[in-house]
């Protein structure tokens, strides 16, 4: 089991008011799975993704990644997990504006001490995976939205992570470009990567083998593709 969460709670305290962003979420995802998370706005999808992606820690409950208890780790250990085990793709791309595409892709490798030569080679390979070798020296503002998201994808997979997470990766793209991105995800899944994506759109969710529905911070239901 790659991911196992047990009664995860995320509670935001806003002064006297408490927001239960996640309530008793228990979820298991196996290696090689392709899952989509759907739900209305404000239902807690991003909150869950951030917990799974080790960007945030739960208020209550346990989270095991690769059988390691992540929910008890300190900041530096979490940073290491984010670097080694997880590739995160955001709706708003989140690229360094002043760095080239290649440099953006190299970034995770910088933080695990990979040598310059190796970094350059791996970044080139990752850009090739997303068909962007010829844009390596472009800065984000010299790229289209779809291209930016492909750079972000290349960055997510450059470290060969155990898990690729994408929070509404097509949210800022038109339908056609969105499907191009989804095709790259499909390719990555075929190569054996584990993927979790959050989406509003049913079209997009159907790329996945498994759809998890969330409402008001709790898992409502699940669907699995039959094959």
């Amino acid at each position: 089991m790659l991911i196992r969460t047990q009664d995860l709670w995320k509670i935001y305290e806003m002064g006297r008011e408490k927001v239960n962003a996640l309530r008793e979420v228990s979820l298991e995802i196996e290696k090689g799975e392709y899952a989509a998370i759907m739900g209305p706005s404000g239902s807690g999808k991003s909150t869950l993704m951030n917990l799974i992606g080790c960007l945030d820690t739960p208020t209550k409950g346990d989270y095991y990644l690769n059988d390691k208890l992540v929910s008890q780790m300190n900041d530096d250990e979490l940073a290491r997990i984010r670097n080694k085990e997880i590739g995160f793709v955001f709706q708003t791309f989140n690229l360094l504006a002043r760095a080239t595409a290649a440099h953006n892709v190299e970034l995770p490798l910088v933080y695990n001490g990979t040598e310059s030569e190796v970094r350059k080679r791996k970044a080139r390979e990752a850009l090739k995976m997303v068909d962007l070798e010829d844009r390596a020296t472009h800065k984000p503002n010299e790229l289209s939205g779809g291209e930016r998201q492909r750079v972000a994808l290349a960055r997510a997979l450059v470290n060969n992570p155990a898990l690729i997470l994408a929070d509404e990766p097509t949210g800022n793209l038109d339908t056609k470009t969105g499907h191009e991105i989804m095709n790259i995800f499909k390719k990555l899944h075929r190569q054996g990567n584990t993927l979790i994506i959050v989406t509003h759109e049913h079209d997009i969710a159907t790329y996945a083998d498994r759809i998890i529905y969330i409402r008001d911070g709790a898992i409502e239901k699940e669907e699995r593709k039959k094959n």
């Binding site: 992606g53 900041d75 080694k84 995160f88 360094l96 995770p108 933080y111």
Partner: peptide, 16 residues
């Protein structure tokens, strides 16, 4: 701030 967030998201530690 956003740049810092990005760097942290891809694995930068506090000391980095």
């Amino acid at each position: 701030t956003r740049e810092i967030g990005i760097r942290k998201a891809v694995g930068a530690r506090k000391r980095n």
